[in-house]
Every structure is written in structure tokens, then in C-alpha cells.
Design a protein around this nucleic acid. Structure first.
Lengths: 179, 179
DNA sequence: TTTTCCATGTAACTCGTTACATGATTTC
DNA sequence: GAAATCATGTAACGAGTTACATGGAAAA
């Protein structure tokens, strides 16, 4: 998650409803865990910065004897900034990278049956993840979130497809080697 | 790229051929750029650590009056370590995350035509990337690298598919709104 | 003769995470 | 009475990148 994306997330949430840090963090970890991860400290720091830059305004409120809240709301400048960030970020197509591919690159080193077994385990795990996304209820929080969930689903499905295809081709290879 | 994946990459390269840091870095940036990125300083530091941990041995060699090379080769322990890392990493299925999705989550904020236009731009970019991968020659450097390239291709294709589907559904939405 | 290549490394810097500190207030 | 919740923040740490330093050799 780049700084810009963090800004979009926070500004977007604050636009739909003015909020303080605790609330924002809570919402992210309870409702957005599947599509976004940002740690508390990072969120607090980012909110500070957004306020310093004038994208959001701060009002300190106190309820009863609880610790005072710093409630943020979007400024007009922030509103424009948010739209421009979203537009720019929607358009961006930074290169896809798959960390785990160092292992794939050198799978030749491992005996084929072990490779197949490992990939099967991975495929099973991915299917489980996919099932979780498929079972997830519509989010309701807006069209965008559902589309984002769809995005993950798409790639999870692609991952399963790739794994199956790869496993199959390796199995063919195995048979060819030792008939 | 996690430390383990970095280790796999370096150990794997050194296994297929003993090499010094410069050579390793050169090979990565000239031949592996599409599937791996690791900066020079990181590679040198990682090689040091691998040597310190006993996975690779060091021999200093000098050719002519050039700066001396520190040539690394895999130790038996390193060999075993590499296999175990590969196996473990092939099996791993860490959650997929798409940074750019903060923008997607809040695409409702932007006027629909602008969203569609931005996504079209992204789709065009992705298609271009996909074409590059499709045009790429077989790597030759081993089955694994080709499979890794295939992995990227798969996800690039999925990305294009998702973009097209999303754009289409947004266009339908647009027509429904203003007939 | 100037640029590029060979070859290694260090130091400073950026960035985010982990872990901790604080303290009142509901809930079990 | 203990535990979880509300609410904010700081400090230390780790990890990796950028940029720099060095200096001979080969290529342009």
C-alpha cells in the first residue's frame, strides 16, 4: 500500500463520514480486512499528515469522561485532492509481482513429486481462500468495495487456474519420464 | 520479496553456477527483471549473510589487475537449505493483495464516465504488458523460469478480464442511469 | 579521452511495524 | 474484580533503497 493509497482510504472514509482515528482503525480491521491492511500507528501518523497538509480539518470532541477524540472532516481542498488521487490511481497499472516466484523459478531443483505435492497443498489453500470470498456477503458499503472484492476473487480464481494447469503439465512430465 | 525468497534466488543461481556478486546482480537485472527485482546493495548484503550462515562458501579470485572477486559456491548445508526453502515456499499461499484497490473501493466518488475512462486506460496498459510477456522468447534457463513467466501472464490476463468485465458493467450502469 | 564496464561495499535515509505507555470506562 | 473497550500516541527497531566512494580496464 503506497502513501497515496493510504490517503485515498482515509480521505474516502472521512468523506462518507467524519471520524476519529480509533473509529477509522476499528472499521478497517473489522470490515475492510480482506481488501486493505494498515496498522494503527500508520493510520494515526497518516491522519496527522493529512491534517497538516490541509486535506482534512480537526475538531477535538469529548464524550463524558472518555479520552478526547480528534474528529476529522474533509476540507474542500481535501475533496478535490481525493478525486484526483482516485482518478490517477485507477489509471495506474504498476507491474504485478509475485514474491513467491523465486521458488517457482527453481522448482527444477526439487524432485518432481515433491513439487507437485507442494503445489497441490497451495492449490487447496487457495481454493479455501476463494471459497471464503465467494461466501462473503455483499458489503453494502458501496459499489466500490464489492468491485474490489471481485477483483481479489478474480485473481484468486486465476491463481487456482494457473496452479491446476501447472500441476497437470508437471504430472504429464512425470509420466513421460518414468512410464 | 521476503528474505527467504531472496535466499532462494541467490542460492539457486549459485547452485547452477558459482558466481560473484557483480555477476549475480548483472544477471538479475539483465535476464530476470520481469520476474524478480532485488537491488545491488541488498544482494551484496544478502550474500554476506548467506556466507556467514554457512550456506555458501567464499573464494577470493583475481583476474589480471581487476578488483578481486568474491566467488561463492553452495555448501552441502546450503544445498539442503535451498531445497527446504523451495519446498516451503512453493507450498505457501500468502494472501494476495492489490494495492491499487483503495481507489477501486472509492470509485463511487468519481463521475462514472471518468471512472470508465480511467479503467480503459489501465486496461490498455495491461494489454501492452501482456503482449510483452507473450512476445518474450522462451527463457531457456530452465523450466522454472518459464513457469514463473507463465504465472505473471496468467494474472495479467486475469487482470484484463476483470477490467473488461468491470468496465462493461459500469457502462451498463451508466446507460441505465441516463437512458 | 571520455565514457562505460568491472567489482565491492558503506552510510545515510525513508518507511512502516512492533511494542509499549497511559488511563478512564464498560462489561463479564 | 478482571478483562475488554475506548482513545491516542511515542520510541525503538528492522529492512531495504538511494546515493556515494573507489579505482583500474576496456571500449568509444
Amino acid at each position: 500500500m503506497t502513501p497515496d493509497e493510504r490517503a485515498i482510504l482515509l480521505l474516502g472514509m472521512i468523506k462518507t463520514q467524519r471520524a476519529h482515528g480509533y473509529l477509522v482503525n476499528d472499521f478497517i480491521e473489522k470490515n475492510l480486512a480482506r481488501v486493505a491492511d494498515m496498522k494503527k500507528a500508520t493510520a494515526y501518523a497518516t491522519l496527522d499528515k493529512l491534517a497538516k497538509d490541509g486535506w482534512i480539518g480537526v475538531t477535538t470532541e469529548q464524550v463524558g469522561n472518555r479520552p478526547p477524540r480528534k474528529v476529522y472532516d474533509l476540507t474542500p481542498a481535501g475533496e478535490a485532492h481525493l478525486l484526483s488521487l482516485i482518478k490517477q490511481s485507477l489509471r495506474a497499472a504498476e507491474p504485478l509481482r509475485f514474491g513467491s516466484d523465486a521458488a517457482v523459478m527453481f522448482l527444477d531443483e526439487l524432485p518432481l513429486p515433491e513439487v507437485i505435492e507442494a503445489l497441490r497443498a497451495r492449490a487447496a489453500e487457495r481454493r479455501a481462500q476463494l471459497a471464503m470470498y465467494e461466501a462473503a456477503p455483499k458489503h453494502g458499503m458501496g459499489l466500490g468495495v464489492d468491485i474490489a472484492l471481485d477483483h481479489v476473487r478474480f485473481h484468486l480464481a486465476a491463481e487456482v487456474g494457473w496452479l491446476d494447469a501447472t500441476i497437470q503439465s508437471l504430472e504429464k512430465e512425470l509420466l513421460a519420464r518414468a512410464p
